[in-house]
């Protein structure tokens, strides 16, 4: 199964994103961002199922939470969404 990773600037934003998505019924977990995902070092990602992407994107767009980047995680690894 593929996933999306939502890179957040801080653990506080990651927690807020998780809470928002969780309250909307979207299953999500917080992880430390894999090395190299953030040029700035030390970030957190919220991992969601691929099928939840559209709803998650809509919810975050309407919220004050600003993801740094989105990544698709599939069998080939991680690729940034543009």
């Amino acid at each position: 199964m593929n996933h999306y990773l939502i890179l957040c600037r801080s653990v506080t934003q990651a927690q807020r994103a998780r809470l928002l998505l969780h309250n909307a019924g979207i299953s999500c977990q917080i992880y430390r961002a894999p090395a190299g995902l953030s040029r700035r070092g030390c970030g957190y990602v919220v991992r969601i199922r691929e099928s939840d992407y559209a709803q998650a994107a809509r919810l975050l767009q309407a919220s004050p939470i600003r993801p740094v980047k989105w990544f698709l995680e599939d069998s080939r690894g991680l690729s940034e969404l543009h």
Binding site: S10, V11, T12, S38, R40, G41, C42
Partner: peptide
């Protein structure tokens, strides 16, 4: 240390960090 933007020497530009 803030646990964020650790590769940078400036404090993060965002609150609360």
């Amino acid at each position: 240390g803030t646990g964020s933007n650790s590769l940078e020497q400036e404090m993060p530009e965002f609150l609360p960090d």
